[in-house]
Design a protein around this nucleic acid. Structure first.
Lengths: 233, 233
DNA sequence: CAGCGCGCTGAACAAGCGTTTAGTATCCTG
DNA sequence: CAGGATACTAAACGCTTGTTCAGCGCGCTG
């Protein structure tokens, strides 16, 4: 257990142990399946204590969200300080002690809601910054839509995360699931990122053409964020 | 309602109407949240009738799976007959009357299980065939790992499907969600597929090098399927 | 020592779940 | 017209869920 904080589980307050266990169990089986009684039994306390500390089951979820989001922010700041080529998504998958956190985030993304959106947006911001640096250093090609490209890469990463169970043989043990899945896609991914998929720019040119002729249909979709369109005028 | 079959809802047997409603409601709110009572109320029958026809709630799910899988197979065969450039995933997203089916598949992919794996594998097989044709006709580059590339593309497609709610503004109505999400990723996707992401083949070469030096680590991951390795010997 | 707060428990609560059971119409068949 | 299958319902069952409530023991404070 122990999650991120250092020291023995015995050193943590019972409230913290409940929170950590809840994160693990919600991540493993989902919010609904992780019942108040099951979590309490796992920690070794009464169900009533859980409600005493967190008010309600939703209060517990809120506390978990807050904790995970705080931890996530710290991690991002940490790896943003050095300009290592590690993305946040990749790092989440590798460090074993934060696997419960990753599973919890995975569940949250599936369930939807404000918390998941915060995480997703943070991932996109982080990925975009990483890509910007890579463009500046000449390793990555510039793009007409940096934000959109970052979104696409986050979607691909999280997609392989969410669909990991279908990428590996059925009998793969749960703890090897995500690493095995990302290794499965490594070569095709690198190949795609290096050479692309199409032999020429026909599709892209056609889409740009269509886009130029139907400028109305995109403003409603893009929404928010980018107001600056000076470079295209 | 009416789903795929033709005619008025009144023309269908009550059993079929229950099944269709179940598909819609499970797709909308998940298997657990779509209770027997809620489905029965939506159809306008008693909860007991549902059990009378399908034996149990799991029996109902089984019937839904069977129906969706059968319908899916028909669709795939249909668009595989002509060599249109439409992928199955894309088609699912566009035809409005099969949106409930798509939502149901989406939920099933999240919940996991045999049915979801069947759908996923079928999508991969179909995508791979489509890519093979495109390679033969010269529109798409050949690859060292055709199956892996097909998996990657399915993951990207389904990923944007699963994460659609994060790709669009919060207030986007549910029925525009998937189209809006895929349009959001259209330009970055085409750009990536046309030019790739990296400026040179450094990362790919390094990985291939590493792969050549550590040939052990991949057999356990690849698993199943491809036994033919004659071209590399 | 009295008393208050805090961590904690056992037992119970109402509500919702999937499911069962007994029974009622209805229609087809002999 | 008799009779059995079929479509369907009302009511209840047992179980699990989140939540409440009264109360216990312990440590700190006055």
């Amino acid at each position: 257990m122990r999650l991120v904080k250092s020291g023995d589980p015995d050193d943590l307050t019972t409230k913290a142990r409940i929170r950590d266990t809840a994160i693990t169990m919600i991540g493993r089986s989902g919010f609904a399946a992780a019942t108040v009684r099951a979590i309490a039994a796992e920690v070794g306390v009464s169900p009533a204590l859980l409600l005493h500390h967190f008010g309600s089951k939703d209060g517990l979820r809120e506390a978990c969200n807050e904790y995970v989001l705080g931890w996530y922010t710290v991690q991002v700041d940490e790896i943003a300080r050095d300009d290592s080529p590690a993305t946040v998504v990749g790092m989440i998958e590798r460090t074993p002690e934060m696997l419960p956190l990753a599973a919890y985030i995975r569940r949250s993304l599936i369930d939807g809601g404000t918390f998941a959106r915060q995480i997703f947006d943070a991932l996109v911001v982080d990925t975009e910054r990483y890509l910007d640096r890579s463009v500046a250093s000449g390793r990555v090609r510039p793009t007409a839509d940096p934000h959109g490209r970052a979104v696409l890469m986050v979607v691909t990463s999280l997609g392989s995360h969410l669909l990991a169970e279908y990428l590996v043989p059925t009998e793969t043990p749960a703890e090897q699931l995500v690493p095995a899945a990302s290794q499965r896609l490594m070569l095709p991914g690198l190949e795609l990122y290096t050479h692309g998929l199409f032999t020429d720019s026909g599709y892209l040119d056609a889409y740009r053409e269509w886009q130029r002729e139907n400028p109305a249909s995109q403003s409603s979709v893009r929404g928010e964020r980018q107001e600056m369109r000076e470079e295209s005028s």
